Amino acid sequence: MSNKSLKEALAHRRSYYAISNESPISEGELKELIEFTIKTTPSAFNSQSTRIVLLLGNQHKKLWEIVKDTLKAITSPETFINSEKKIDQSFAAGYGTILFFEDESIIHHLQETFPTYQDKFPIWSQQTSAMHQLTIWTLLEDAGFGASLQHYNPLIDEPIHRQWAIPAHWKLIAQIPFGTPLQTPPEKEILPLENRIKIFK
């Protein structure tokens, strides 16, 4: 891990699409990074509803074959060529992929227990997942990885649940493919802060 402050680590976090299948840390350190996130990231009503699946090696590659097979069946040949190239040269070329799920059985239990907020729990669940995504994404980059956040769900939900025997009540939210970065992403545009922040005193 680096010696960056939290502010520095967050500022450094970017979307890396050019990645290799090498890792700057051991599998044990990677597992510890995920476990740390699960233990320390907050959740609404302390629901702890986020579920993580880590895919490495051939399992990682299998995921992106599933994505390509799914896209090939629903897109034109011309469109698929571009999608296949992007997947092969970026996501599938990485070291691994982290799948983010939310356990809907917990959400449903909270809705029954606290009916006043029943329409809010699915929203809070998404917010919980987002905090886990940002935490893992930032920690991955702090460890020397390049990563990006992807959303091929719900197109790939069924084959993923089938391939890895994922419980039916786990809802797929996002995917983070990661690997050693091969190039620095371009500078990103930051919209004027005065249009995004209001301070009253």
Score class of each variant (00 low, 15 high):
Asn3Met: 10
Pro167Glu: 06
Ala165Thr: 15
Glu141His: 05
Asn3Phe: 05
Glu29Met: 05
Ile38Pro: 00
Ile199Lys: 14
Ala93Asp: 09
Trp170Ala: 03
Leu110Gly: 01
Asn46His: 13
Ser125Phe: 02
Pro167His: 07
Asp88Trp: 08
Ile123Asp: 08
Asp119His: 09
Asn153Asp: 14
Ser47His: 04
Ile107Val: 14
Asn153Gly: 14
Ile190Arg: 12
Ile123Cys: 00
Tyr117Phe: 12
Leu149Ser: 02
Gln183Pro: 00
Phe91Ala: 10
Ser148Glu: 01
His60Phe: 04
Ala174Gln: 06
Leu55Arg: 01
Ser90Trp: 02
Leu139Thr: 06
Ala174Gly: 12
Arg14Trp: 09
Trp64Ser: 02
Lys198Ile: 08
Ala165Lys: 13
Ala9Gln: 10
Asn195Gln: 15
Ala143Lys: 08
Leu139Phe: 13
Trp170Arg: 00
His108Ser: 11
Ser76Pro: 06
Asp88Cys: 10
Pro159Ser: 11
Glu112Pro: 00
Lys86Gly: 07
Thr75Phe: 12
Leu30Glu: 03
Pro24Ile: 09
Ala130Pro: 00
Glu22Leu: 09
Leu71Trp: 03
Ile123Asn: 14
Phe200Tyr: 13
Tyr16Phe: 14
Ser125Trp: 02
Ala147Arg: 04
Ile107Pro: 01
Gln133Cys: 06
Asp142Val: 04
Tyr95Thr: 12
Ser5Ala: 06
Gly179Ser: 06
Arg13Met: 02
Pro159Gly: 09
His60Thr: 09
Lys62Met: 05
Thr79Ser: 15
Thr70Val: 08
Thr116Met: 15
Gly96Leu: 03
Ser23Phe: 02
Ser47Ile: 05
Glu158Tyr: 10
Trp124Asn: 06
Thr50Ala: 13
Ile136Thr: 05
Ile66Glu: 07
Trp170Asn: 08
Thr128Gly: 11
Leu155Thr: 07
Met1Cys: 05
Lys31Met: 09
Glu158Ile: 14
Ala165Trp: 00
Lys68Pro: 00
Ile106Glu: 00
Asp157Tyr: 01
Pro177Ala: 08
Phe178Val: 07
Lys188Asn: 07
Gln175Cys: 03
Gln89Cys: 08
Asp69Leu: 09
Glu8Ile: 05
Arg196Asn: 13
His151Arg: 12
Gln111Lys: 11
Gln48Leu: 01
Lys4Ala: 06
Ser26Pro: 05
Lys62Arg: 15
Thr116Trp: 12
Ser105Val: 05
Ser20Leu: 05
His132Pro: 00
Gly144Ile: 11
Ser129Gly: 01
Lys86Thr: 13
Leu63Ile: 08
Pro177Gly: 07
Thr75Gln: 15
Tyr17Cys: 02
Glu78Pro: 01
